[in-house]
């Protein structure tokens, strides 16, 4: 008997919360199949015309490749950087390690608009110190968006890889070293496979943070080079027609797929360790 008796109020309340959280999402999906010209619930008839309108719209055909390129490149970069850093900080006894860890988590804490403003200045004018200026002209470019999303992608892989490193049996690494493997070989053949679930879920989180990012992207994109979320954000500010519901539902499908992948990535070896 390890649970307190639960009155029916908390449980009923919690189910109400679930309804309030989930119902709007389901309702907006239902509305995307309407054959009417306005957003209504229940939807009138059934049609896929709004999906067709979205898919054939030129805006989306331009932006989808940008969004995908940026999300793939930035999540790979962020996860590699974060994995190496987490490894260095957990295994090497570095002075000031706590402060450095905080810095790797900080992009998650600083308000997106604040970071976007700073990046907008630097991406426009370049890194300048006194008379020397390097770079610049990155606003409205794919590399500019990739660099920005790499920064905001770092914290989650860092946290997740750091946690998986903490649960790796150190004697396995020591055994490899005693048998003559170099630290590099030990890392690639012993440590990396063991922390792979953490790395993969970090990668998916980093992908999601870039794919869903709208604030920084709206500062750093131009009418020519822009991402899917920025376009949706603009549309939601102007008109609400069923095409917005159709886009939402398609994004929802992407989100559900990613969450599914995430639970796959986290399940396999995690069960060996935790339970």
């Amino acid at each position: 008997m390890d649970r307190r008796r639960l009155g029916c109020f908390p449980l009923a309340f919690s189910f109400l919360v679930i309804v309030v959280l989930l119902a709007p999402i389901l309702i907006s999906v239902a509305m995307s199949f309407t054959s009417a010209d306005t957003l209504t619930f229940p939807p009138v008839g059934f049609s896929l015309q709004w999906y067709q309108a979205v898919i054939h719209g030129p805006k989306w055909q331009d932006r989808l490749p940008v969004s995908l390129t940026v999300a793939v490149a930035s999540s790979l970069l962020a996860t590699s950087i974060a994995t190496l850093a987490a490894f260095a900080l957990v295994r090497g006894k570095i002075r000031g390690g706590n402060l450095i860890s905080t810095l790797f988590i900080a992009p998650m804490i600083v308000p997106a608009v604040v970071l976007a403003t700073g990046m907008y200045f630097v991406w426009t004018k370049g890194w300048s110190l006194g008379p020397i200026t390097v770079g610049g002209r990155l606003v409205g470019t794919i590399p500019g968006l990739i660099l920005a999303d790499t920064v905001i992608g770092i914290p989650l892989p860092f946290i997740l890889v750091r946690a998986s490193l903490g649960s790796v049996d150190l004697s396995l690494e020591q055994a490899a070293r005693n048998l003559g493997a170099s630290p590099f070989t030990t890392f690639t053949t012993i440590t990396l496979p063991l922390i792979m679930p953490g790395v993969l879920s970090g990668l998916i989180f980093a992908f999601m943070s870039s794919w869903d990012e709208v604030v920084i992207a709206s500062f750093l994109s131009s009418p020519r080079v822009s991402t899917v979320p920025v376009a949706i954000f603009q549309q939601l500010r102007e008109t609400l027609d069923p095409s917005a519901a159709a886009i939402s539902s398609m994004l929802l499908l992407v989100s559900v797929t990613l969450v599914g992948l995430l639970s796959l990535a986290r399940r396999k070896p995690a069960q060996l360790k935790e339970e």
């Binding site: 950087i81 850093a85 260095a88 810095l103 992009p107 200045f121 630097v122 170099s182 630290p183």
Partner: peptide, 29 residues
């Protein structure tokens, strides 16, 4: 291997560079 052994800072380097130039620098600016 020697670099890794002598300096655990090497794998930390890309992260430090990213944080300094892509995060702290914009905030400082």
């Amino acid at each position: 291997g020697r670099a890794l052994r002598s300096s655990p800072l090497l794998p930390l380097l890309p992260g430090i560079l990213a944080i300094v130039f892509l995060f702290l620098w914009p905030l400082g600016q």
